[in-house]
């Protein structure tokens, strides 16, 4: 589906959304009449310092407006921009800053929903889609940490061997199903069903704690993470009580 198809499907009553370069920004109206902010990165472009600061600026303006309207963040990107200039200027701060603004928006009462409809990878994925409160995806989306050929170079394993290993576990290989099984993606939408009701249903989902590790355990893609994290929380509580009496 093209971005235009997706926007038309999500907002049949109309939207005012502009794409400038790789950046999507605008507003739309939900079927129930409520406004929703729409942001995103498109055309499979990399996320560098210039794009990240623009997107973060939009999020901050939304939070400052105090309207508490939800934010839909559309993602079809490459990875972070790999360049000397971006790193020289401190890319990590720009990506973190964007992620923090999205986390801030959710905490300040704006529901944040990520919609992965194309690619995304590595730092760009963390700073956008994975920083939203609920991440959903359309079939055909293709998240990755690193593509298999690059992974082959780093791990010094032939691509055939990597492919065979990827059959056995969802934990390392790129792809939508693997990212869903490990809990990173809340749901994959059916492309043939109308999109607007699906979005409305996600908006109904109560705002809650980070449950991605629990999802990963339930789906069998990340069996240990939730249990380990819970155990650390429990141990910290025990040792704190011990220290008080010690």
């Amino acid at each position: 589906m093209t971005l235009d198809d997706i926007l038309a499907g999500l907002f049949p009553t109309g939207s005012k959304i502009e794409t400038t370069g790789a950046i999507i920004a605008g507003q739309a109206v939900l079927p129930d009449g409520r406004p929703i902010h729409v942001l995103g990165i498109t055309q499979g472009q990399p996320l560098g310092v210039d794009e990240a600061i623009l997107l973060a600026g939009h999020v901050i303006e939304i939070v400052k407006s105090g309207d508490r309207a939800p934010i839909l963040f559309l993602v079809d990107s490459a990875s972070q921009r790999m360049s000397k200039r971006d790193e020289l200027l401190g890319l990590s701060e720009y990506l973190s800053h964007l992620a923090k603004t999205l986390l801030l928006a959710e905490a300040e009462g704006h529901r944040t929903v990520g919609l992965l409809y194309g690619g995304s990878a590595a730092g760009a994925f963390i700073a956008t889609a994975l920083a939203t409160g609920t991440l959903v995806a359309l079939p055909g989306a293709h998240p990755a940490v690193m593509d298999l050929p690059s992974m082959g170079r780093v791990t010094k394993l032939p691509i055939d061997v990597l492919k065979a290993k990827a059959e056995a576990t969802p934990v390392f290989a790129p792809g939508l199903d693997n990212m869903t099984q490990t809990g990173g993606i809340h749901a994959i939408w059916d492309a043939d069903a109308p999109l607007a009701p699906r979005l409305a249903a996600v908006m109904q989902r109560p705002k809650g704690q980070d449950d991605r590790d629990r999802l990963g355990a339930k789906r069998g893609g990340r069996r240990k993470a939730a249990e380990i994290a819970d155990r650390v929380v429990a141990l910290a509580a025990t040792s704190y009580q011990g220290a008080q009496h010690g």
């Binding site: 994975l130 920083a131 940490v145 992974m151 290989a173 490990t182 990173g184 990340r222 993470a225």
Partner: peptide, 12 residues
């Protein structure tokens, strides 16, 4: 990689 990437997001 997928577990590590999600851990980063959870930690942040």
């Amino acid at each position: 990689a997928n577990a590590g990437e999600l851990a980063i997001a959870e930690i942040m």
